[in-house]
Design a protein around this nucleic acid. Sequence first.
RNA 1: GGUGGGUUGGCCGAGAGGCGAGGCAACGGACUGCAAAUCCGUGUACACGGGUUCAAAUCCCGUACCCACCUCCA
Length: 470
Amino acid sequence: MPLRFYDTATREVRDFVPLEEGKVGIYLCGLTVQSEPHVGHIRSGVNFDVLQRWLRVKGYDVTFIRNTTDIDDKILAKSAEQGRPWYNLAYAMNRELQKAYDALNVAPPTYEPAATGHVPEIIELINELIARGNAYAAEDGSGDVYFDVRSWPAYGELTRQRIDDMEAATDADPRGKRDPRDFALWKGWKKETEPETAAWPSPWGPGRPGWHIECSAMAGKYLGPAFDIHGGGVDLRFPHHENEQAQSRAAGRPFASYWLHNAWITTSGEKMSKSLGNSLLVPSVLERVRAIELRFYMVAAHYRSHVEFSFEALDEAAAGFRRIEGYLDRAASVLGSVPDGGMLCAEFLEAMDDDLGTPAAVAAIHDVVREGNKLLAGGASEALRGNAASVRAMLDVLGLDPADPAYAGSGGSDDGKLSAVVDALVGGLLAERDAARAAKDYAAADAIRDRIKAAGIEIEDTPNGPRWTV
RNA sequence: GGUGGGUUGGCCGAGAGGCGAGGCAACGGACUGCAAAUCCGUGUACACGGGUUCAAAUCCCGUACCCACCUCCA
């Protein structure tokens, strides 16, 4: 079966055919860096990271562009409230976002362009749209430039809406618009309320880019007029993606061939709003579970399925992951090490090819783990080596290989040292316990085990002697 | 008003006409000095009402409830 994706534009699963054989260009709308990232924000990063990894496994040469929006109304408003420059807020929040991506092993994109770095490309695109009669400078002296939705008959095609059915925005400032649904390509500088640093020179006077135009300009710059996949959260379908497509196509660029949208993580059935408390911010969640467990929780659900976030479900997912991880640990202690580069099983491959079916892929891993646990009873063997390597390889595709250096503990190199220290200390106690067990003094043996357990370390007796795990 | 998505067992979460995905929890068995881990086994699940079909969680019609988007949003 060929690789296929659910394309939001056509609402069907379609075979994936790249524009150029062997190559894939992906544009993902990243975040507006205006606040700390919560688990909802990070989901699209994780989902599209899996996409990127899978395309690489399939042998594609992937160009992956994920932007950040570093200037917009909200960033300006928040920075004013906080009494600091907008660029400082955007930069600081971007650093927090990068930390969260790193923690969750979200691989860096090919490039991460920012809106403010692409004003010339944006101006060029707006000029093209004006020249073609699809955009106009407002006549009210505001310095705004709008896209003329009535001039583009295909407007609404991505989300299958007719202009006349759309509610005109109640909160939008009509200013110099010809139609209330026209959207800003360029926003004239508001001298009284906006800092001078938030304005760039343009043919229409000082101002800044509108929200949608940056993505069209940057996708064009790095991926060309036509590219393969455009991604983002479902909420971006309209207006953001609709507008991106309209302005790009109106400028003569075919734009994206496939649209992929990830669903939400909600809490209490509601969208995770940016005004929520901080309990769901990534660093806060990571105080409860390890980053690899949080990632497993996200990957175990399909990217198009709505996930109702709960700490109970998160803990369950973590327990499920530890089962896989425990197997790899035991296999490694029997084999010496588990090699990388193992085979992906057929069920896993088929699942991933089918619109990134990560739930079925995870189920396939569990099946292989069960076989591996049986093999483990027979001690070291080539079958066990192959099985464990396979599990590792499949986890790696999902960004979940426990041996990935990305997950090498927050304490860095201290982890290894600490482990050696604990091993030495626990080792002494285990020797005492073994002596007691040999003498059939089980009360004494259990007392030692209880003492170790009280310190947070579990003891398991295996055919190769006792093992400890934290 | 317009456009989409959803409702699956104690819980999470797949599937999209025909063998009960998988995990967590629970229970029984094996193993163990006892545990833990592991393996084996155990489940009247598909919001409700009709319909189509040899066969429906899956398709059709209707109903209820929930959610998202309609120019700030992952």
